[in-house]
């Protein structure tokens, strides 16, 4: 194991960085997209609710690998070129946003409907009440589940290995076949994933307890 780190340290580190980078980018965009669809789902406008429902149902029920490969293989075939890292990040963003939308929607629903009615009665518009009264409260509830989504995101980013996205798993595969010490390479890769995910999951558990 130490020999793997000594020989392939820079590759592993590069993979670690790419995994982290793609997870953070995906988290950022899927938070925006997910919250947008969650708000759509709770608007009084039926058209927006239907759009949100369709988006969420489709992308929750198709494997991440299919979505990612679609962007890596099909889009370049007909439209424009997308490299592996980008394709993987887009796939992760779309897939995760559907789950985040569900999480945020549950958060919005958990806020007492009286809050919305009260602020509407005070003369705020629907959007203003959502923006200033409901959403801030909803987000407090959804921080632990969102943290868990981020952990899932980091784990799921291993899908980049399928599209040569130079992430940790890709480097792991390359190193494993180069060094031929398969098991110890994957143990190293596992440790690097745990460095990101384990503290996060303990932190989320702590937050969950404090909120409960």
């Amino acid at each position: 194991m130490t020999t793997i780190f000594a020989h392939y340290g820079s590759e592993l580190l590069q993979g670690f960085g790419q995994t982290l980078l793609c997870s953070v980018i995906s988290l950022f965009f899927s938070l925006i997209i997910g919250s947008m669809f969650a708000i759509f789902e709770t608007t009084p406008i039926k058209f927006l609710r239907v759009i949100a429902r369709i988006y969420i149902e489709i992308f929750r029920n198709i494997p991440l690998l299919v979505i990612t490969m679609f962007f890596y293989v099909v889009i370049p075939l007909y439209l424009f070129k997308i490299d592996g890292f980008t394709a993987g990040t887009i796939g992760l963003t779309i897939y995760t946003s559907a789950f985040i939308a569900e999480t945020v929607r549950a958060g919005i629903n958990s806020v007492d409907p009286g809050q919305m009615e009260g602020s509407r009665a005070n003369g705020l518009s629907w959007w203003q009440s959502m923006r200033y009264i409901v959403l801030p409260q909803a987000f407090r509830y959804v921080i632990p589940p969102l943290g868990n989504q981020f952990i899932n995101l980091v784990k799921n980013s291993s899908v980049l290995a399928f599209v040569a996205g130079f992430d940790l798993m890709y480097q792991g595969n390359v190193i494993a076949s180069d060094s031929l010490s398969t098991m110890s390479t994957y143990v190293c890769v596992g440790l690097l994933y745990l460095i990101i995910t384990l503290p996060l999951s303990y932190w989320m558990r702590y937050l969950e307890k404090r909120l409960a």
Binding site: Y72, V73, V74, P76, L77, K81, D83, G84, F162, A164
Partner: peptide, 11 residues
């Protein structure tokens, strides 16, 4: 198979 598909997709 993946490599050939990637070539076709202009990767």
């Amino acid at each position: 198979a993946q490599a050939m598909t990637a070539l076709k997709s202009g990767q």
